[in-house]
Design a protein around this nucleic acid. Structure first.
Lengths: 138, 138
DNA sequence: CTGTATCCTTCACGATACTG
DNA sequence: CAGTATCGTGAAGGATACAG
């Protein structure tokens, strides 16, 4: 694997792009994973059905606006189902769909990896910061 | 599981926060996953050692500035090692560390999930968009 | 309670020029 | 080749007010 003394001229099979620049779907996932609240929302809903207000309380710091946007996008992607009970005051329940539950395994793997390597990352950062004082990288 | 006819009063063990709002590291991972180029860079480096220019060519669309920032951050986190050969012109090689390689498994799982569920997501979006014409959600 | 509508700020990223 | 420096832009997200 590291036996390359000459340049690696054969580009191995692409993993992310199918053909020159064509995204195969990973970008969608990364975008969802990337926004501030989607994963945390999925994690909370993995515990069970939640009402709007319950979600908001479970996600300290989220604004009403962002919670709405987040659950709407998750619903649009088919990860979350939204059930409106026509009562007064209104009652809306959010729940993970089977597709959403399948994402849960992945999220669990991410959480596990974080737990397992967080110390190493923190140490590495501290060492790097000491070796590169005054760097604007962060 | 769905047997809750009364409210779920016992909040299950937290998964993301250790204690009220304390992040246990998942946030760091999500931030890295979230930025535009980190994962793609790791994927490319998973194929082998790469020089700066090689990386740039492998990541169509990335600017010189962003590539620098991305590899610096990955280096700071201990995911990537940077080796400078004091030649002229300069030659710098980037390589995944063992920590970086461990992330590869997770990325692979993400790619697999994307491949497996991309169609379902696309379908769900189309259906949602048809059911919610003129929505600003996207 | 469950949203929408506005306004405003931040900052991630791109473009470009310059350096050793 | 491998960066650094600077500037500009758009989009994400927060705060707040209002509605059904």
């Amino acid at each position: 694997m590291s036996a390359g003394h000459t340049a690696v001229t054969t580009t191995p099979r692409p993993v992310v792009w199918c053909e020159d620049g064509v995204d195969c779907g990973i970008r969608d996932l990364l975008d969802r994973l990337g926004d501030k609240w989607s994963v945390l929302t999925v994690v909370e809903l993995a515990q069970g059905v939640r009402r709007f207000r319950e979600l908001q309380r479970a996600l300290p710091g989220i604004s009403q606006r962002m919670l709405t946007l987040t659950v709407r996008r998750l619903e649009r992607d088919g990860l979350v189902s939204r059930t409106v009970h026509p009562t007064v005051p209104p009652q809306v329940e959010y729940e993970l769909t089977p597709l959403g539950h399948s994402l849960t395994h992945l999220v669990r793997a991410m959480v596990d990896w974080s737990y397992g390597h967080h110390d190493a990352i923190v140490d590495s950062r501290r060492a790097w910061d000491e070796a590169n004082p005054g760097s604007e990288i962060r």
